[in-house]
Design a binder for these strands. Structure first.
Lengths: 113, 113
DNA sequence: CGATCATATTCCTATATCGGAATACGTCAA
DNA sequence: TTGACGTATTCCGATATAGGAATATGATCG
């Protein structure tokens, strides 16, 4: 098998830097495709494709506005990502000396299972 | 071009669910490959490959212990991820006037695939 | 040395990407 | 309708994956 689809979840969708850039831009409000493409220095089809991925994982919503289609942020899908990564917070806040001690501590008290 | 390498950064490395599982397990302390493989129901070569990716992005470090190699967590690389995602926190916590407006809009306009 | 355990790498295949170019689709204005 | 604009899709090629099987490397001990 190959790598999981970019559309399989938010983790995969935001692995692409350009898609992260798009999401960041959309915090300022809704925008049409061409706007995003120009601002981020990518082609219009390129932007459309990235937006399709973001839409499929639910990180972005579209709304027709005349000739244009306005893309807007829907950040709710990022919450699980934030929570998962947040589960490691104590580990990057600890110094490595303390981390080693902590690890040894765990080894000794691993009886609990 | 193809998708960015899984080893290009933490974002890509943690896009794979099994690698996230490995990292989660390692919070309890260092572990040898076979241990991880068995606990997560994957093959030994499979675990080794995932650990290689994690090591290349610096999320994991190894230390030889006799015949074994103990893998340990180095979560510092997750901090940038946490911070990036955290930049959207107010958007999923917000009461979301804009989103609500948008939803009402949808009811009036036509659907979108 | 030779045997054995622990781990890493290689080879293979099916699949999925990203980007560019060309093109199709959709909507509005005259 | 026609034309023009905004956007989406399709086709293409190069690349890279995850996983299984087989094998290679490494370390320890008798």
């Amino acid at each position: 098998m190959a790598r999981a689809a970019t559309t399989s979840d938010a983790f995969n969708a935001i692995a692409e830097p350009q898609r992260r850039d798009i999401l960041a831009l959309l915090r300022a409000g809704e925008r049409p495709v061409t706007d995003l493409a120009q601002e981020l220095g990518m082609s219009q089809p390129g932007a459309s494709k990235h937006l399709r991925v973001l839409r499929e994982v639910g990180l972005v919503r579209v709304r027709g506005a005349g000739k244009q289609r306005l893309y807007g942020l829907d950040a709710r899908g990022l919450r699980p990502v934030h929570e998962w990564v947040g589960g490691f917070e104590r580990f990057w806040n600890e110094s490595f000396d303390r981390l080693d001690t902590y690890v040894q501590d765990l080894k000794q008290t691993r009886q609990e299972g």
